[in-house]
């Protein structure tokens, strides 16, 4: 990898995170906000799968950014994203050679795990009782994930080939 490719890749890495944050902040309508996927987690999952260096630190950092933006308990999103990133990065080699469906099921299961961690933190901090509609982002993530992975893969290939 040449120096300029490396630099381009790093820029692309951070750009994808900033885009994910922006997607979460955009003032969609009330219904769309309920079903909108957890963009940041999807991006973290993608880069962990790619075996990006230091992905856990960056997941922690962008999780903290989201906490500050959303006004939630400091470290809440950081905690769930670091867990997601660790679990995917640990078995990234196996996951990369599995079939499309198996990979998607794995990602969705880990997103559910992430949701449970956040719901537990909310319950401990202010007795939040989870509702069934909290699961909607996972269903919409199932529709977004293939396109997101395809798009990011394509662009990365383009960078690598110059």
């Amino acid at each position: 990898m040449t120096k300029s490719t490396f630099r381009k890749q790093t820029t692309f890495f951070h750009f994808s995170f900033i885009c994910a944050l922006m997607m979460m902040l955009l003032p969609w309508g009330k219904v769309v906000i309920l079903i909108q996927p957890y963009w940041l987690a999807l991006v973290v999952a993608y880069w962990s799968l790619q075996g990006q260096a230091n992905i856990m630190n960056w997941a922690f950092f962008y999780g903290l950014m989201l906490d500050v933006l959303m006004g939630s308990l400091l470290g809440k999103h950081g905690m769930s994203l670091v867990a997601l990133s660790f679990l995917i990065a640990k078995s990234a080699k196996q996951l990369r050679i599995t079939s499309f469906w198996q990979l998607m099921m794995m990602v969705l299961a880990l997103l559910l795990n992430d949701l449970i961690i956040r719901a537990m933190i909310d319950w401990i901090s202010y007795q939040y009782l989870p509702r069934a509609i909290d699961l909607l982002p996972i269903i919409s993530a199932a529709f977004i994930w293939p396109w997101l992975k395809y798009g990011l893969d394509r662009y990365q290939l383009k960078i690598r080939n110059g």
Binding site: L74, G78, V82
Partner: peptide, 15 residues
């Protein structure tokens, strides 16, 4: 992983 999670727990408590 454990170090980062510990930092998160400390942050939550200190919040």
């Amino acid at each position: 992983f454990l170090v980062l999670e510990l930092i998160c727990v400390l942050l939550m408590v200190s919040d």
